[in-house]
Write a protein that binds this DNA or RNA. Structure first.
Length: 305
DNA sequence: GCGTAGACCCGACTGG
DNA sequence: CGAACTCGGGTCTACA
């Protein structure tokens, strides 16, 4: 469930069940899901058993759950979750059968919802869970969506704030974009500049702003940048409202349900189909070892450099 | 030249 | 044979 809207769907689905819950058991089916955990599998299981979950937070495509350890006092660490290309967080009843591609299961007890299972399933294993220390944010603002505390996990510290974060530093963002000679699409995908945008929403936002994906970022006018930022926010908001983009059963919410935004796409995956603005066919080019979709007629490169 | 920062490629997987 | 909503480490280049 990879980009910001899909990850936010997961965050908001997990929060009611996980905030205030206590972890009763941890089952690691596949140690590859812990490649980003600094300690051993045993350390992961033992540190988490009996832990009390304080919040479910998100910045860009990263999720984290601050917790107080069994018998502990304050939340100094968090479970960091990244879904990679195919990760899912599923909420199941206690004792539910092992899911296809299930990598890790957390059994939890919630004061209102009772016993539940949180299942991390991941076909391609690019996703992971990890325990990570919480560090203060450099701007003293809350670490991300769903966070009250001004902290982020160490693994998330280098990730920029996302377009839906009120603490996003737009001045810094404009300055960074103005300095980059790389193609704007590449820059949109750089999570240290602005986070949460992946291949789908980069193509969609550039289509909406009528900007060619290979336009050098520093060639964009202030007006282009304003339009692009507005399109980014609009497409992410709309995708979130529609439950995210689901092409297949891979991208689902915590209850296994797909989102509807795939029906609203204008560029991504529409190779050869008529542009919804001008009717000319959407082009697909290979770019950075992945696909870029755009309208060659509506999205022109600027004439000057 | 050295050291550093930025840019970019590629591998890490499963499976339609 | 290799589509695919990911990330970061290694490596190369450019420059002070």
């Amino acid at each position: 469930m990879p980009e910001l809207p899909e990850v936010e769907v997961v965050r908001s689905g997990l929060a009611p069940a996980l905030v205030d819950a206590t972890v009763s058991a941890v089952t690691v089916h596949d140690a590859r899901a812990l490649t980003r955990h600094p300690g051993s599998v045993d350390d992961f299981e033992q540190s988490l058993r009996g832990a009390h979950v304080v919040a479910v937070c998100r910045r860009g495509k990263f999720l984290w759950m601050p917790f107080t350890p069994a018998g502990g006092s304050n939340a100094a660490r968090a479970v960091v979750a990244h879904l990679g290309m195919s990760g899912q967080m599923l909420l199941r009843f206690s004792g539910a059968p092992v899911e296809r591609h299930e990598r890790i299961r957390l059994d939890i007890d919630h004061p209102h919802h009772g016993a539940l299972a949180v299942v991390f399933a991941d076909q391609r294993t690019f996703g992971s869970l990890a325990l990570d220390p919480l560090l203060p944010t450099t701007d003293a603002a809350p670490g991300g969506f769903g966070a009250d505390e001004a902290t982020v996990p160490a693994q998330v510290a280098h990730i920029a704030r996302d377009p839906l974060d009120p603490a996003l530093d737009e001045t810094r963002l404009r300055r960074l974009w103005a300095r980059k000679r790389s193609a704007i699409k590449r820059v949109l995908l750089d999570q240290t500049v602005i986070s949460g945008i992946g291949n789908i929403y980069a193509d969609e936002a550039l289509w909406g702003a009528r900007i060619h994906p290979e336009t050098p970022a520093d060639a964009l006018s202030a007006r282009h940048v304003t339009r692009l930022l507005a399109e980014i926010r609009a497409v992410l908001d709309k995708a979130l409202a529609e439950g995210g983009t689901s092409f297949d059963a891979q991208y689902v919410n915590v209850n296994g349900q797909a989102g509807y935004f795939a029906h609203s796409l204008h560029a991504y995956g529409r190779t050869g189909a008529p542009c919804h603005r001008c009717g000319r066919p959407i082009a697909r080019v290979s770019f950075m070892n992945r696909s870029s979709h755009f309208c060659p007629s509506c999205q022109r490169m600027p004439r000057t450099r």
